[in-house]
Amino acid sequence: MGHYQPSRVVTNDELAQLVDTNDEWIRDRVGIATRRIAGDETVADMATAAAGKALASSGLTAADIDLVVVATCTSVDRSPNVACRVAAKLGIAAPAAYDINTACSGFAYALGTADHAIRAGAARNAIVIGAEKLSDFTDWTDRSTCIIFGDGAGAAVVTAAAEGEPAGVGPVVWGSVPEKSDAVRIEGWRPYIAQEGQAVFRWATTALAPLALRACEQAGVDPSELAAFVPHQANARIIDGIAKRLNIPDAIIAKDIVESGNTSAASIPLALSKLVERREVPSGAPVLLFGFGGGLTYAGQVVRCP
């Protein structure tokens, strides 16, 4: 794993100078204390930085990588895609390279596609990245959204298991709710993010726990065995709401949202990379990832902690 965040920390007090809000309100409603906001860095720059660190920590080299998948919904350039830019910058010579956009559930989707490619024999060593620069799409005059989002990237190296070695990535449970397409939007030309907060909160806190439990079931892992739960870092109260329904009192619940805000597809790999870096979860222990967001889409799987 590896992650990258821009150096600029933006506090709630700074946002209170832009819009009518305050630190207490933001902490209470969404559970965010600070977020990182990019300067000149592009989505590809942040993705490359995170991927470079993941590659270094994996012990593999650029020559070993044959697949690069980037989950993002905030890349401005239409072509080349972010995956090709990352590959070029890291000196990965000829990988299969593609971006996917399922908004905030992107990393779990990307991990699912990489897992499938490796299982099918179409790839051996993949880099899976979630990278977002949401600040490019944030309306800094809208107090209901500008307090939520942050920028950053996280990445994981995923390799084929050796003969007889247990799978590190469990079966993905994924899907969408197309009838709720309007609940989270980045629509049109030069758009801003907009969402129906109550509808998203309701869906997230009621519909997702059963799907997350299905991911455990498909991986053959009892929820009580989970060492950690790393959901998309949308809102601390959504995270608490899902965790309560999963009934996993002993698992670490990732709360990187407090310091990083909501970074969409980057939030799961960012949070997981930090847990790994701090050695909070033993290597090999089961961790439940679950992404959800615009679409509405969702995807999750149990992985063995790197």
Binding site: G197, Q198, R202
Partner: peptide
């Protein structure tokens, strides 16, 4: 009761009273 707690109230009320309260 803030807007998110209101959603939790509605979800709990649906269960308790056996009704549907759409978004």
């Amino acid at each position: 009761v803030d807007s998110l707690s209101m959603v939790e109230v509605v979800v709990a009320a649906e269960e308790k009273f056996g009704v549907k309260i759409p978004d």
